[in-house]
């Protein structure tokens, strides 16, 4: 009896937990459909009052209802449209995408090259350089915030797109991950290619890369997500709002008195959705990648 019950109990508990995980998202989306007055009057509900059956009936009977409030005639997507037209959220989203794509591309490029060197070559100072790389991973980002700003300032890149992206172009994490993947490729294949006349770049291109696709995809996804979710660094480095990624744009949306929360939630939904879609499409790489990176490092 116990044997059959446990999976069922576990399932129920997991379902309960899943509801807890998803509830804030439902709250966000539901609030993004409300008007300002609706949100002020009803902070808790998931459904905008003007769409509730009870309110609709009251309105039809001619009684005062939520549809009489300012914005009672708005369609559900009004806040999304306003966020784009007034709030210029499309600009921020486009920026987030640009930063994500460029940082990912550069990281993949640079990390592949460096990991190849560590995995397939012997050279003087290899242990030292590897140790240094390891050391860079030990530094908490909070310590690096100020000096990175000063470095970027010296380079004249403050308040530019490059300034936002540059520190993200190389990461020890990615080098380690790829090195691990490269080391797993048998040396015979490399020798075979060398016999065929490939130089080191040829081996990289024809042998190593094709065989490490999963690791590359995993790293690419991780990097893209990390870049999309960047907040403190662009907050510090940027002041021109045309360069803000969505995270910074959101945080400054509400700096006015009496913030328009439904509109903010609409922008938030638009900021969270792309990554969720990406995740759904590429789950196995991400989840697999975490296990890979988490334990083996």
């Amino acid at each position: 009896m116990n044997r059959r019950l446990t999976p069922l109990v576990a399932l129920l508990l997991m379902l309960a937990g899943a509801v807890i995980m998803v509830y804030p998202y439902a709250y966000m989306v539901g609030s993004s459909l409300k008007t300002r007055r609706e949100f002020a009057q009803d902070k808790e509900g998931l459904i905008p009052p003007r769409f509730e059956v009870g309110e609709q009936l009251k309105h039809r009977r001619g009684e005062p209802s939520a549809l009489d409030w300012p914005g009672g005639d708005w369609p559900p997507w009004q806040n999304y449209a306003d966020a784009i037209s007034f709030g210029k959220v499309d600009r921020y989203l486009g920026n987030s995408l640009m930063y994500g794509v460029v940082i990912t591309a550069m990281q993949l490029l640079l990390d592949v090259l460096a990991a190849y060197a560590f995995a397939r070559f012997e050279f003087r100072g290899k242990r030292l350089l590897f140790g240094l790389l390891l050391a860079t991973m030990m530094v908490p980002p909070a310590v690096l915030l100020i000096p990175n700003f000063l470095v970027v300032r010296e380079l004249g890149l403050v308040d530019t797109a490059w300034g936002v992206m540059l520190p993200g172009f190389a990461g020890a994490f990615g080098i380690f991950l790829l090195r691990q993947a490269f080391l797993n490729i048998p040396a015979e294949l490399e020798q075979a290619a060398r016999i065929d006349g490939c130089g080191s770049t040829g081996i990289l291109w024809h042998v190593i890369l094709p065989l490490s696709k999963p690791a590359l995809i995993t790293l690419g996804l991780f990097t893209f997500m990390g870049a999309w979710n960047m907040f403190e660094w662009p907050l510090v480095v940027l002041s021109d709002h045309n360069y803000y990624p969505l995270t910074v744009g959101l945080s400054l949306f509400r700096a006015e008195t009496g913030a328009d929360w439904p509109r903010i939630f609409a922008a938030s939904t638009m900021g969270a959705a792309p990554l969720i879609l990406l995740f759904l499409a590429a789950q196995r790489y991400l989840v697999g990648g975490i296990s890979l990176s988490g334990i083996k490092v």
Partner: peptide, 12 residues
């Protein structure tokens, strides 16, 4: 091969 990535990582 190492130079670009390592130099950036070390600088930052």
């Amino acid at each position: 091969y190492l130079a670009p990535a390592l130099s950036l990582a070390l600088i930052f």
